[in-house]
Design a protein around this nucleic acid. Structure first.
Lengths: 199, 199
DNA sequence: ATAACGATTGTATGGACGTTCAATTTTTTG
DNA sequence: CAAAAAATTGAACGTCCATACAATCGTTAT
C-alpha cells in the first residue's frame, strides 16, 4: 500500500476510534491510550499523526460537522417541484435520521468547546449560517416558483432552524423514542405552518 | 460559628468556586486541586465534604438548574392582568438576562452529561417539563381570562419553548451581542405571534 | 474540665495522562 | 540492491489527578 494511503487511512482510523470511544466514555475521558488500545497500536503513533490532543479534537469536530451537514443533502431530482423538495427536506429535518449520522452526546460535547475556543466557535457558526442560508434558498426558490407565499424567507428560515434546534435539544432529554417522534411531528407541523403549508 | 453553619457555608463555597473555575477552564479541566488552591484550603477538605468528584458535579448541576429556574420568577402583582404578565415573561425569556443567572458554557457542559448519566438526564428533563408546564399555565390563565385565544396552550407552550431553546443555542455562536439581541427579538416576535399577540 | 466530634491540615500513594525520543521495521525511491 | 524516508514500536519522563489516612486544631456537649 502506498504510504500516502496508509497515512490517510490511519488518520481516519484514529478519528473514527476516537469517536467510538467518546460515544461510550465521553470526550473528556477519551485518552490517547484508550484509542491506541482499541486500535492495537502504540499511543505514540497517534501523536505521530496528530501532534497533540487539541489537533485530534479538532479533527473530531470537523468530522462531526461534515456529518451534520449531510442531513441537508437530498438529491434534487427534476421530478420534483421546489415546493415538493422543500417538504421533503422539512420531513427529513424533523425526523430522527440525525441519529444515523452522528451521536448527540459527542456532538453537544464538541459544541460546548465553542465557549472557550474561538476557532471552534467560528466553525460551528459557519456551519449553522450555511444551513440556514441553504434553507432560505429553498424557500426563496418556492417563492420564485410561486408555489409559496413567504414575506421574508430569511426570517422564516431562522424560525424553522431555531425551532428545529430547540426541539432536538428538548427531545434529547426524553428516553422514549415514540415521544421524541411526537414532539418532532408537533414542531414539524409548526414549521410547515410557518411557510404557509398546511398538511 | 455553629458547626452546621460552617459545613453549609463551606459546601456552598466549594460549589461556587467550582463554578468559577469551570467558567474559565471548563468543567473537565477543573480539579479538586484547582478549586482548593483558589479557596486556600487543602484538596482533602473538598473530599471531606463531597466524597468524590461525581458528587461535586451533581451539586454543580443542581446549582445550575436552580439558577435556570429563576428566569421564570417575576413577581405577579395584582396590578397586571394575566395577559400583561405573560408578555412580561416572554420579554424576559427572550432577553439576555440569562447571562446574569448562569454561564452558558458551564450550563451546556453540564447538559452533555445527560447522555451518559440517567440521573442527570432525569433532572434536566424534569426542569424543562416544569418550565413548559409553567408557561402553559400562564397561557391557560389568559385563555380563561378571555384575553387570549389559543386552541392548545400545551402545544403552543412547547413551540415557544423550543423556539427559545433553539434561539439561545444559535446566538451562543455569535460574538456580537447586538446581533444576539436582534435574533432574540426576531424569535420573540414569533413567540408573541404564536399566542396571537401582535406587537 | 474533659471527652467526643467535626473541621482542617499535611502527607502519601498509585495510576493515568500527554508527550518525548531513540530504536526498529517497513516501504519507497533511485 | 542500497539508501532514504516514513511507519511503528517501546520505553521513559514529569505532571497532575482523585483519593486515603493519620494527625492536629477548635468547638460543642456533658
Amino acid at each position: 500500500m502506498a504510504k500516502q494511503a496508509i497515512a490517510t487511512i490511519r488518520k481516519k482510523e484514529i478519528v473514527d476510534t476516537f469517536y467510538e470511544v467518546a460515544q461510550v466514555e465521553g470526550i473528556e475521558n477519551t485518552s490517547f491510550a484508550k484509542i491506541a488500545q482499541r486500535l492495537e497500536i502504540q499511543p505514540s503513533l497517534i501523536v505521530h499523526y496528530f501532534k497533540n490532543r487539541d489537533e485530534l479534537i479538532l479533527s473530531l469536530i470537523e468530522y462531526n460537522l461534515e456529518q451534520y451537514k449531510k442531513i441537508f443533502t437530498i438529491a434534487h431530482s427534476d421530478d420534483h417541484s421546489h415546493r415538493e423538495y422543500l417538504i421533503m427536506v422539512l420531513d427529513k429535518l424533523f425526523s430522527l435520521e440525525w441519529n444515523d449520522l452522528f451521536d448527540d452526546g459527542v456532538y453537544y460535547s464538541c459544541f460546548t468547546l465553542i465557549f472557550r475556543h474561538p476557532v471552534i466557535k467560528q466553525k460551528f457558526k459557519e456551519l449553522h449560517l450555511e444551513l440556514r442560508g441553504h434553507l432560505e434558498n429553498l424557500i426563496s426558490n418556492c417563492v420564485a416558483e410561486k408555489s409559496l407565499q413567504v414575506e421574508n424567507p430569511s426570517v422564516v428560515a431562522n424560525h424553522i432552524s431555531n425551532l428545529m434546534d430547540g426541539t432536538y435539544y428538548f427531545v434529547s432529554m426524553l428516553d422514549d423514542s415514540l415521544a421524541q417522534k411526537e414532539y418532532l411531528e408537533e414542531s414539524k407541523a409548526l414549521a410547515k405552518k410557518l411557510i404557509g403549508f398546511y398538511s
